[in-house]
Design a protein around this nucleic acid. Sequence first.
DNA 1: TTGTCAGACTTACGGCCGTTAGCTTATGGA
DNA 2: TCCATAAGCTAACGGCCGTAAGTCTGACAA
Lengths: 212, 212
Amino acid sequence: MVTAVTNTEPRRRNRRGEGGKLRDEIIAAALALLDEGGDERAVTLRSVARRAGIAAPSIYPHFADQPSIMLAVVQQEMDALATVLREAVDNAGPDARARLFALCNAYLDFAKLHPQRYRIMFGGLWTPSVEDTSITDADLDSLGAGAFTLLADVLGACVEEGIAHGSDDLFGDAVALWLGLHGLAHQRAVVRKMPGPADVGDRLIRALAHLK
Amino acid sequence: MVTAVTNTEPRRRNRRGEGGKLRDEIIAAALALLDEGGDERAVTLRSVARRAGIAAPSIYPHFADQPSIMLAVVQQEMDALATVLREAVDNAGPDARARLFALCNAYLDFAKLHPQRYRIMFGGLWTPSVEDTSITDADLDSLGAGAFTLLADVLGACVEEGIAHGSDDLFGDAVALWLGLHGLAHQRAVVRKMPGPADVGDRLIRALAHLK
DNA sequence: TTGTCAGACTTACGGCCGTTAGCTTATGGA
DNA sequence: TCCATAAGCTAACGGCCGTAAGTCTGACAA
């Protein structure tokens, strides 16, 4: 994670050849605004510039428009999520069931820890109808593929080891499981107080993974 | 459902004592903008007024601020959803399993038919942090209670008839089932092309209702 | 030491927003 | 017929937005 930008003193200009550093600072500023504000509408081009301590037009050498700042944020956080999930699985030992629960709980924890990020990652409204922005369809389609593949793999291992009743369609089962996780994660991220029992996450996992 | 407002001719003023009619026209205009635009940001106070064929300040006698227009839209659509679900259950006959599937599929159909409405109803970002708006917490808490109660009832009937493996916590089971439905409905409403098999909805219902 | 140019900045334009203050008009009871 | 008033309008303010055009400045090769 990149540290938040809080200093108000005039920013020190980057050295020659290091202009690209500002790109990361812009992303970090956008992320900070998102986490604090709890509203993606607060992440405007100008507010990002203010937060990063630069003038608004200074963003243009690094990003074509405001939506592409958001895309960069989402891409970065998708990678971060995939990394977190991978680490959780690796640290869970060899047991397939434990690996599945570690993966799913890490997913839910990420959403609980960063609700605003989760919202824009999986339900975000940061592209004003994709047209008239610089964002392509390919940009959007590839998002989150790594994390999902990992889920399918771990679930597949459970089926192979006989821990879970697998259907003939592993991909479909993985999608269903992810949708359940997403429903919980998203609702938690959106609502102020989530109703229901505390172990609703475990219930979803057990039911949707068809654990024996 | 209220018909969309499309005429551009100067609007006929309402008769005396019928000023309240404009309130419904405003809600209808906001709904139309939402359905078309696919972006709640397009539903501004001014754009709603334009769509309704009135001047922007003419909204204020009927709504305190822009968020409360959205709240009225959401409340209306929550009622509409509850009605649709109730009708689906009533038309499904006496079989508890058929009633449950009718309910769940009606829910998913609503979301598929009106993705933008679904989004603001269950994940909406139409209150800029609730503070400094005229919206109270009570307004938000009561939303969707009717529809959920119906789901819990129909699921409970399945358990009573021995169709489903009920746990000791019917409420929790209903929440879990709803979260699964919501995950699918929301993702369909947000993403352009939903991956996964076509029957993923049925899979979610069967698994989360613990149908035998 | 000096000149160049990457890495920023200042200024400005037009647009849409929410909201306030005060005005017009047509409806319908007297 | 008249006129009180409900219903809705016009004008305007301040604010924030995205973006274009042109300007400054300091790090570094020569």
